[in-house]
């Protein structure tokens, strides 16, 4: 097997995640799909690291994980805050930033 298949799998996972962001309307599930896309990117980074024979790709994937962790913390806090004031986690219901 050619290791390029890892890149194809990453592309597939990214596509599924992007489709999920377009299709779903529950804010939490949207966030999960974004995480899926970030993970697909990480897989591509790790595969490219193997292709080039150096560790730079792995370091970038590591930074992606850190940024994803920060993003999840803030995003979920925003979802909880919106849920408290609107009693809904659907992105269709939040048309305004103000209540």
């Amino acid at each position: 097997m050619n290791p390029v298949n890892y890149l194809y799998l990453a592309a597939l996972l990214f596509t599924v995640g992007a489709a999920g962001v377009l299709i779903r309307r529950n804010a939490i599930v949207l966030f999960m799909c974004i995480e899926l896309m970030l993970n697909a990117c990480n897989l591509a980074f790790v595969t490219f690291s193997r292709m080039h024979g150096n560790l730079d790709g792995q370091v970038i994937a590591f930074f992606t994980m850190v940024v994803a962790a920060a993003e999840v913390v803030i995003g979920l806090a925003i979802i909880v805050t919106i849920f408290r004031s609107r009693h809904s986690a659907s992105v269709d219901d939040s048309g305004l930033l103000k209540l």
Binding site: Y6, V46, M65
Partner: peptide, 17 residues
Amino acid sequence: TMIVLAVFYLANGAYFL
């Protein structure tokens, strides 16, 4: 899916990741 990706990282030589 994330656990499977972890296995893929290990297979690709990214043990730490």
